[in-house]
Amino acid sequence: MANTPWSQNQYIKAYQFAALAHRGQFVPGTDIAYIMHLSFVSMEVIAALRTEQGHDEDLAVQCALLHDVIEDTETTYQQISAEFGMTVAEGVLSLSKNKTLNKSLQMADSLQRIKQQPHEIGMVKLADRVTNLQRPPSAWTKEKMARYQAEALEIYNALYEASPSLSLRLHKKIVAYNVYFD
Rank of each mutant, 00 (worst) to 15 (best):
R169V: 00
A152H: 02
R169K: 13
A33R: 12
N98C: 12
K173N: 01
A162K: 03
G85A: 09
S7E: 15
K115D: 12
F26N: 15
H37A: 00
V27P: 01
A82N: 09
L159S: 06
M36C: 07
E90V: 01
H55L: 10
S104G: 03
L153H: 05
P28Y: 01
A82I: 01
K172M: 11
Q62N: 10
V27I: 12
H67T: 03
H55Y: 15
R135A: 11
G91H: 03
I114M: 10
N178S: 12
I46Y: 04
Y160C: 03
R50A: 15
A14I: 00
A152G: 12
A127P: 02
K13I: 01
S163N: 11
V41C: 03
C63G: 08
Q106K: 06
S167H: 04
Q79H: 03
A82H: 03
L101H: 03
Y180E: 11
M43Y: 14
F84I: 00
Y77P: 01
Q106M: 12
S167K: 05
A176E: 02
P118D: 14
L166R: 01
Y148E: 12
A2H: 12
I12L: 13
A108K: 14
G91F: 01
Q149K: 12
I46P: 02
T4R: 11
S165C: 13
A127G: 04
S7Q: 15
L66Q: 01
F181L: 08
S138E: 15
Q62H: 04
S81C: 09
M1D: 15
E74G: 06
D56V: 05
V45D: 13
Q134I: 04
T100W: 10
Y11D: 15
A176K: 06
A2I: 08
I80M: 07
R129M: 10
A108Y: 08
L95Q: 06
R147Y: 14
P137S: 00
S110P: 00
M86F: 12
V124M: 09
Q62T: 07
A21S: 07
L49R: 05
R135L: 11
K173D: 01
N157R: 09
E90S: 05
A139S: 11
Q112A: 14
M145V: 06
G24N: 11
A162Q: 02
R129H: 10
A150I: 07
I80R: 05
H37S: 01
M1Q: 14
A60D: 07
P136N: 05
N9Y: 13
L168M: 15
V45G: 10
P136C: 03
L66Y: 00
N9V: 14
Q16G: 02
Q16F: 06
Q10L: 15
E161H: 13
Q149D: 02
L101E: 07
Q8R: 12
L105R: 13
R147T: 13
R147S: 13
H22V: 06
A176D: 04
Q10N: 13
Y77Q: 02
E74P: 04
M107F: 11
G24F: 04
R147W: 11
S104D: 14
Q10W: 06
I121N: 09
A82D: 13
L65M: 08
Y34A: 09
G29P: 08
D68V: 05
